[in-house]
């Protein structure tokens, strides 16, 4: 089976986010980039399914030159080849990203497309759903378990109130939640091999995408109001006194 997976590079999710002086964007000077954690889960799942059922895993990323490294990270984990679609970050919104993925999907014709449920920079949680609609395919978002049974992917989803299981007719779109698996680390041989694996560069012309207007545009950013400093209390009695008389929640 052929599986397409997406990988986005994001600013290290554990780093402190700073804004540029003019608040137009996040300060990306001297930040470290990582593969979006959910995409590591997506890649891991694709590799497991390939190893079980045979086939090929193709990693796609949309972005400037340096996202090649993000794709290499996926190849080092064990994916077979990569595709980079060259678009500047600022020229992208979720909808255009989804239309690009839909075009790549049509060229590659995979059985399954696995994305992360959410990129931890924009926290949009929508590209997978948009792709599925553009392709007219079934979707299972927030997956914590995936198995292939005949012509169906059986997926358990983490939803409000519990766990839901649905079966999708292949081809289908799945978005990965964090508990789907434990992503492997790239081994040294894996990293060496990844250097020789092919990465195809494409642009919007190659995919025949002419409508590049953004549907949603970020105009400005601000830091949220901070909380006022709290106090340390020395005992349960003192805590209760504060909760009753100061916070008035008791």
């Amino acid at each position: 089976m052929k599986i397409l997976v997406s990988a986005k590079r994001v600013i290290d999710p554990d780093a402190r986010i700073k804004l540029k002086a003019d608040k137009s964007a996040v300060d990306s000077e001297s930040v470290e980039y990582k593969v979006n954690p959910f995409d590591e889960n997506a890649i891991e799942e694709a590799l497991k399914l390939r190893d079980e059922h045979g086939g090929e895993v193709v990693v796609v990323s949309i972005g400037p030159d340096d996202v090649t490294q993000t794709i290499r990270a996926g190849l080092a984990m064990g994916a077979d080849r990569g595709i980079r679609v060259d678009v500047e970050d600022k020229a992208l919104d979720s909808d255009l990203a989804a239309r690009i993925f839909a075009a790549v999907f049509k060229e590659e014709e995979p059985d399954l497309f696995i994305l992360g449920k959410q990129a931890v920079d924009g926290d949009n949680n929508q590209v997978g759903q948009l792709v599925a609609e553009y392709l007219g395919l079934p979707q299972a978002c927030f997956a914590s378990e995936v198995s292939i049974e005949g012509s169906e992917a059986v997926v358990t989803r983490e939803v409000d109130g519990g766990l839901e299981t649905i079966a999708l007719q292949l081809p289908a779109v799945i978005t990965a939640d964090l508990r789907l698996n434990e992503p492997r680390y790239a081994s040294l041989p894996g990293i060496m091999k990844a250097k020789k694996k092919p990465i195809e560069d494409m642009d919007l012309d190659d995919l025949e995408i002419t409508d590049t207007a953004l549907k949603v545009e970020v105009l400005s950013l601000e830091e949220p109001a901070g909380r006022k400093a709290g106090v340390m209390v020395g005992s349960v009695d003192e805590l209760l006194e504060k909760l009753r008389n100061e916070a008035r929640v008791l």
């Binding site: 999710p13 402190r16 986010i17 931890v120 920079d121 105009l219 950013l221 601000e222």
Partner: peptide, 8 residues
């Protein structure tokens, strides 16, 4: 960004 930024 996990609520560290509010965008308009």
């Amino acid at each position: 960004y996990a609520g560290n930024v509010i965008a308009t």
